[in-house]
Amino acid sequence: MLTLVPGSAADGTPVELSALTRTPMPADVRGAIVTPVHGRLMAAWMPLSGPSRIPRGRVLLSWTPAGVGRTDVTARLGLAGTQALLAVWPGLRGEWSAVVRPTVAEVTELHAALCLATAVLDRLAD
């Protein structure tokens, strides 16, 4: 179950990740589930109290302070039945969402393309 990021729209739309990157993660979340939307990274919190499984094809970003003005960021990708460590960015400075955006966007688009190709191949095989 995902909860909305504080300040997000009442209709359930997540907020832009860059709105979150200057502050530590709340203590009651695993991280932020991130979805690329029209070139922007939109995020919603994944609470500790919910399931630990990352939705398939989604990226969970978590971050911790790493000294004055620095942040360690970790990305995990949800796969069928498991999750995989996608990337680690140690010691990022300032507003870091632009640094992780290319990796997150490319991996989620690649995952979607592979799922589509698999579905087409399965259908052709039937």
Rank of each mutant, 00 (worst) to 15 (best):
Q83V: 12
V15G: 00
A105Q: 14
L77G: 00
W45E: 14
L121K: 07
D11P: 01
P90V: 07
L121M: 12
E95S: 06
R93F: 07
H111M: 15
V104H: 01
R22E: 11
M42F: 06
L2C: 02
T71S: 07
V73T: 07
P102V: 14
R58L: 07
W89A: 05
L17I: 13
G57W: 02
E95I: 10
E16M: 08
R30H: 05
G39E: 14
P65S: 12
L48Y: 02
L4A: 08
Q83A: 08
G12Y: 02
H111L: 14
H38R: 15
G12H: 04
R76L: 04
M25R: 12
P90H: 02
A32F: 02
R53L: 09
V5D: 09
A27C: 06
S8G: 03
A87I: 12
P102S: 07
A87E: 06
M46C: 04
L20H: 04
L20Y: 02
M1K: 12
S52R: 15
G69K: 10
L41W: 08
V5L: 12
M42L: 11
L124H: 09
A44G: 03
L20M: 11
D72C: 03
I54P: 00
T71E: 08
G94H: 06
A27G: 05
A9E: 10
T35W: 09
H111F: 13
W45G: 03
T74I: 07
A113L: 15
I33E: 00
L48A: 10
I54V: 13
E109Q: 15
T82H: 02
W96T: 07
P26S: 06
V99N: 04
L4M: 07
A19N: 02
T21E: 06
T64W: 02
D122I: 15
